[in-house]
Design a protein around this nucleic acid. Sequence first.
DNA 1: TTCCAGACTA
DNA 2: TAGTCCGGAA
Length: 239
Amino acid sequence: EGEGAERLQAPSWQPQDWRRQLDNIRTMRSGKDAPVDQLGAEHCFDPSASPKQVQRYQVLLSLMLSSQTKDQVTAGAMQRLRARGLTVDSILQTDDSTLGTLIYPVGFWRSKVKYIKQTTAILQQRYGGDIPASVAELVALPGVGPKMAHLAMAVAWGTVSGIAVDTHVHRIANRLRWTKEATRSPEETRRALEEWLPRELWREINGLLVGFGQQTCLPVRPRCQACLNRALCPAARGL
DNA sequence: TTCCAGACTA
DNA sequence: TAGTCCGGAA
């Protein structure tokens, strides 16, 4: 739901000051020096791989291997997989224990081995080795939820299907009160943001807020002293 | 809501 | 050493 939906009129509610807050975040992010900027899923596939569906598969895999604040762990796992040729067939030919050693120490590596194998088999059987091009089909894959689906649509297919809400987006949206009421889950946050955030910003909001969350708006002991939004943020502390 | 696999830190 | 930490599944 929400997928492809267009707002026909102005939203009934928008947070106060959100444009100034967003401008400040853009400024803080202008260095593009957060882990996500070098090691995010957009950077973990082989752009020379052909056909294109191999690149799309690599994007999905790097999302499935994502490992909170430790983008370099994901990047390392992707590098080891790519060194062996990272395709649907090569993964299906890799036994689970080998795959485990290749992706270790990615968080939740045991379950990820299982999901990657299951999902890869489905891609081969039902999608001709490609990844599906809709959120509904993507979230039906084992180990793929809404956050990965929306990012995969954006990165692999170049289509904005919704806002990818991970823990950073969820936390920061609530700190800035970018949701009309406090939200308890990332899905709730996604729906609340899509209510008012102009669609042309949906694509960039994830990378912007993830990097901000990695460097400044940390989950514990946020660096409010260093934040340009400290005077505009309801959650600012330490002044 | 809890579990997962560990790293990080108060 | 205890508490907190993805996002997805059950």
